[in-house]
Design a protein around this nucleic acid. Structure first.
Lengths: 161, 161
DNA sequence: GCTAATCTTGACAAAAAAGTCAGGTATGTC
DNA sequence: GACATACCTGACTTTTTTGTCAAGATTAGC
């Protein structure tokens, strides 16, 4: 269970755009430079984000990128969804072993777990907006700890099957 | 954010062992067959699980694998941790772009998110035992919906514990 | 002890993900 | 309208992950 390069870079590039003021732009070269990425690589990520409608691009001289919507209206769940393609849907199709289809296609307890875990993540990420990631790590971390969905509940775990 | 092949196969192989009665074994060939995996591939996964102390193996004729502990005492978080290596720790090291180290090593709001999301997942998985995955998908799914850590809270903003 | 069944393990091969390159297209400036 | 800037996009290369192979090691049964 790990975050892919695409997801990581995508988030970071978006965050660069998020700190811009109204009407400001960043060129691809600037985004790449600020994130320590090659221009080619950053370009690919930005293309994905553009295609998904998260950023808008302006071509030609004086061109560049900016967020398509205010950072406060972009939830991380949406970003990850774009950069992740179909992590959940493709799952059972990918891991079929030597067979054409997974042995457990009809009935699979693990699928439940996968789906539920993805829902947990989705819920957590949907409670955070891009705007909330602006600031120091300490500040962001404090903010995250105050979000309901990210905190543990009182420890009433159901130990019955 | 996706579940790797190792994680998926590992979980499935463990679940095969979990349904066995006391003192029963499965050979590698049996595990592989039941999961639709090649013996070589299943062998590698079982080797990992063995090395991590989740299963015990018996070599030689009449050998095989069984869980090292009762399924009710093995939490999914532990399994994933074994099969995942260091997803969190290695994160910032992996995605440095063209540079030697990530641009944001000293202060990074995204790192907070990554860490927190992993904690959310860890918490969710630690509330599920291998034993709870035995049964039909429907039953497992119902069970998961009753676990506190996996459900959304009531939308009571401001309530502090 | 010999044999057959079984796990162990390191080297290799294939596939997927990540990253680069180069040529194409659009647009502002002069 | 020529040129410079900058985004777009498909082909290619490298790296990582996944999967296979084959030889070695261990034990039960005879």
């Amino acid at each position: 269970m790990k975050v892919s390069a695409r997801e990581e870079y995508g988030l970071r590039c978006l965050l660069q755009l998020a700190v811009l003021g109204e009407g400001e732009f960043l060129t691809l070269a600037q985004v790449a430079e600020r994130e320590g990425l090659s221009q080619a690589n950053a370009g690919k990520v930005m293309w994905l984000l553009n295609k998904a409608g998260l950023v808008s691009s302006i071509r030609g001289m004086k061109g560049g990128y900016h967020l398509a919507r205010p950072a406060s209206e972009i939830r991380l769940s949406e970003i990850i969804k774009v950069l992740d393609e179909d992590a959940v849907e493709g799952h059972c199709k990918s891991y079929a072993g030597v067979l054409d289809a997974c042995v457990h296609t009809s009935d699979c307890g693990i699928r439940s777990v996968i789906v539920n875990v993805h829902e947990v993540v989705e819920r957590a990420l949907s409670s955070i907006t891009l705007a909330q990631l602006i600031g120091t790590e300490q500040k962001v971390d404090n903010m995250l700890h105050q979000i309901q969905g990210l905190r543990p509940r009182a420890e009433t775990v159901g130990e019955r099957a």
